[in-house]
């Protein structure tokens, strides 16, 4: 299986605190890969490091490969232009810009090889709400609408791969399934997706495989079907007594 995006011995430190420890992972073509773990396990730090991005000042070592090319030295805007589309956790759209302007910021690069191109109308079909609210400022959108806008802009940029950090946060339970179903439909068209989400139960319905992260280390990896029966997952996320976002 060819891996579109992979990490080799990825380690991320904040000051003296190692948030991601020697992680190897790969996302193959047309695969939806989930990363699960408790709060503070290092999930966001991991995906941010793949995108070469952070709001803090981490020290990153190890390699990130996009289509076999080492992109570890590229700044985040160049990774984005190269098709590595990341939708971060938290604030991920511009609140001073309208929906229209948020979307217009994105430009496709010259090199279309290996990229999944979405036309404006396809994206609007996926997220019709955005069209209705196109003249509203980002600050006037609901949490769910912001998530949609953030995903829409990532699609318009012609992704090779999509990284989604907590796409379902703040969504009504019914919407979580809807958003993940949209993501799955993209994956079925061939777009590889790496998704981090607290709703492990919902994610496992849609994802192909899952990595389990604990204190910055990968402690489990397997197909979604096998991970459903993994003890740790069962205990922490799927069992009846499961506490969401269990603090180890």
């Amino acid at each position: 299986m060819t891996e579109i995006l992979s990490a080799r011995s990825l380690t991320v430190r904040y000051g003296g605190n190692t948030a991601v420890h020697d992680v190897d992972l790969g996302i193959g073509a047309g695969r939806m890969v989930a990363v699960a773990g408790a709060n503070g396990a290092g999930k966001s730090t991991l995906v941010n490091a793949l995108a070469g991005w952070s709001r803090g000042y981490p020290v990153v070592s190890g390699d990130v490969l996009l289509d076999g090319q080492n992109i570890s030295r590229l700044p985040p805007h160049q990774r984005s232009r190269g098709g590595l589309q990341h939708v971060p956790e938290g604030k991920n759209v511009f609140s001073e810009l309208t929906v229209e302007e948020n979307l217009a910021l994105v430009r496709l690069g010259e090199d279309h090889a290996g990229r999944f191109l979405f036309s404006r109308s396809e994206v609007i079909d996926l997220f019709p709400r955005l069209h209705e609210r196109r003249h509203h400022k980002g600050s006037a959108l609901s949490g769910g609408e912001r998530q949609m806008l953030a995903m829409a802009r990532a699609l318009l940029a012609g992704p090779r791969i999509l990284l989604l950090d907590e796409p379902s946060v703040g969504l009504a339970p019914r919407l979580i399934g809807e958003v993940l179903a949209v993501v799955r439909s993209l994956v079925d068209r061939g777009l590889p997706v790496l998704v981090v989400d607290q709703n492990v139960r919902a994610v496992l319905e849609f994802a192909d495989e899952l990595y389990l992260l604990e204190r910055g280390r990968i402690v489990g990896h397997g197909s979604a079907a096998s991970m459903k029966n993994d003890d740790r997952i069962l205990k922490a996320y799927l069992g009846d007594l499961a506490v969401k976002g269990d603090l180890q």
Binding site: G15, G16, G52, Y57, P58, V59, V60, P75
Partner: peptide, 19 residues
């Protein structure tokens, strides 16, 4: 002192920021 000294860490942060 790397893990204790606040000033030291912030110095390192500045010099070793990943760009």
């Amino acid at each position: 002192t790397v893990e204790l000294n606040d000033g030291e860490v912030s110095l390192r942060k500045e010099s070793a920021r990943s760009r």
